[in-house]
């Protein structure tokens, strides 16, 4: 196992370097110049060129790339052209909101999905199985923004149960419990939207995995020993079914973050997805590159974890 882990770890830096170069080249290949958004209608040529050189945009691409890579190596992701702030602090400022949203959604989705999936697998073809499976199949087909808008218009708009946008009420002056409750109140709709879509995935994975486990030898052995069906289901079958579920969910981090980005736009949630969306629309290169780096690194790590778990479970992969 040791050499395999080391080998996999060594493969990471080139992948990240490749991602960085790809993104950098893509962005600079495209037409359009971030200056026009910055300077607006009123500037003349000298003004434009002054700003361009201040931002280093007048240097050759290769030099900009080398500078960028050297910066990344020292933890410097450059400055946002639009906000004139270090990219790293912009990103770090948005990470908590996204983590809160995705974390809550993932926790809720995992809890509900695993629970329903196990119950369904215990009685394939039963009423619960059919019902949940049907709902999950439909949910898996619903676009996140549509679901978000439906919830927004119905629960927040017509019924007025929840705030329609943002993470905290603008007027809230106090902190402490009032703040926590306020944020939780804002969190319900976006997190539910995101969770409902993840539930579909997790439910189906768990259901399939538990069903597969239930036909394994050791379950039959357990049954033969006369253990109670409940104990077999939760202690033996579920526990052995969870790892594949966890690994697949780990591999879906990109989907989760993409879903979060759209949901963040719908609900004006101040997270990474919103930052990326705004940065793409205003062509704020350093911010776009920075977010790509952060998201890609997260995905590289999740992928590594998945592979290692697989290798741990299935020795054939390890020696291949």
């Amino acid at each position: 196992m040791g050499p395999y882990v080391l080998r996999r770890l060594l493969q990471i830096p080139p992948v990240i370097l490749g991602l960085l170069v790809l993104n950098f080249v893509l962005i600079h290949l495209a037409p359009g110049d971030p200056l026009y958004f910055l300077v607006g209608e009123g500037g003349d040529e000298s003004y434009y060129s002054a700003i361009r050189s201040r931002l280093g945009l007048d240097r050759p691409l290769a030099e900009q790339l080398v500078r960028y890579l050297a910066g990344v190596a020292t933890g410097d992701l450059g400055r946002s052209i639009r906000h004139n702030e270090p990219v790293i602090s912009l990103i770090l400022g948005r990470v908590p909101a996204t983590l809160l949203l995705t974390g809550t959604a993932l926790a809720a989705a995992t809890g509900v999905g695993v629970w329903l999936g196990t119950l369904s697998a215990a009685r394939p073809g039963g009423l619960l199985d059919r019902l949940t499976n049907g709902v999950a199949s439909v949910l898996a087909a619903v676009p996140s923004f549509w679901l978000g808008q439906l919830l927004l218009v119905s629960l927040a708009g017509w019924l007025g149960l929840f705030p329609v946008q943002g993470m905290v009420s603008a007027r809230l002056a106090s902190g402490g419990w009032a703040l926590i409750i306020d944020v939780a109140h804002h969190l319900v709709l976006p997190a539910s939207t995101l969770a409902l879509l993840q539930i579909a995935l997790i439910f189906r994975l768990t259901r399939q995995s538990v069903r597969e486990t239930l036909v394994e030898e050791f379950i039959r052995t357990a049954r033969a020993k006369g253990l109670s069906p409940r104990l077999i289901l939760y202690r033996h079958a579920l526990r052995n079914s969870l790892l594949p579920v966890v690994t697949v969910v780990g591999g879906h981090l990109g989907t989760l973050l993409a879903g979060a980005a759209v949901v963040e736009v719908v609900f004006a949630w101040p997270g990474l997805g919103r930052l990326l969306y705004d940065a793409i629309l205003t062509r704020d290169y350093p911010v776009v590159l920075g977010i790509f780096l952060v998201v890609s690194v997260m995905m590289v790590l999740a992928n590594l974890l998945t592979d290692l778990t697989y290798a741990y479970l299935d020795p054939r992969v390890r020696y291949a």
Binding site: G18, L19, N23, A261, I291, F292, S296, M299, N303
Partner: peptide, 13 residues
């Protein structure tokens, strides 16, 4: 490499 590229974001970009 392609698996870890956030594909929705790449498509957007």
């Amino acid at each position: 490499f392609f698996q870890v590229t956030p594909r929705f974001f790449l498509a957007t970009l």
